[in-house]
Amino acid sequence: MTQTTTQPATPAWPTEDEKLAREREVNALGMWVFLASEIMLFGGLFLVYFVYRFRYPAAFAEGSSELNMWLGALNTAVLLTSSLTMALAVHQARGSSRKTAVLFMLLTMALGLLFLAIKGYEYWQDYQEGLVPGLNFTYSGAEQQAVALFLVLYFVMTALHALHLSIGIVMVGVAIVWGQIRPFAHDPAEPVEMIGLYWHFIDIVWVFLFPVLYLLR
């Protein structure tokens, strides 16, 4: 609660750079409040997952073993790397050269698209193996119902994550294009910083998704 001294300062409109500093804080705060709502969204999904895992432990372990763990691990590595490139992009955008910032942002987009490609391939593989409840479900092992429930939750959670990732990729693309068209906006690094916060959040969601869905015993 930083507050100016209570004795009345001379009434004056905030100066330009006062407004700029407040601007940056306002945007970061706004993004963090938005991320709090996203935490509740994914958190609720994790709660549904843990309640059913608490109820059907064996079936969830069985369902988890059907998934391709190595693709999951690879995807985690891809997303962690994209977090690094995003952080470096923000660093460069803040710092001197905007050119390398754009380069890192392109790299981040590429890694994001790679993640989606691997995920798509994994979905296609699951479809081939008949593991998609509601569309093509030919699993005939024990506790078929509970395994179907695990796979439903697997698809809902990863699809919601992939949707958020796709939005992130689009936003990075928009930031690059926007940076070129109006490079002299008074604070060019601001949008990059905001998208960085969002991107790292999406990475954190996957950091939890991977062990919870794939590494279950």
Partner: peptide, 14 residues
């Protein structure tokens, strides 16, 4: 839409 049982008890939901 997909007829899967997240909350449907006959398909294992609660």
């Amino acid at each position: 839409v997909f007829g899967v049982g997240i909350f449907d008890p006959s398909l294992g939901g609660d």
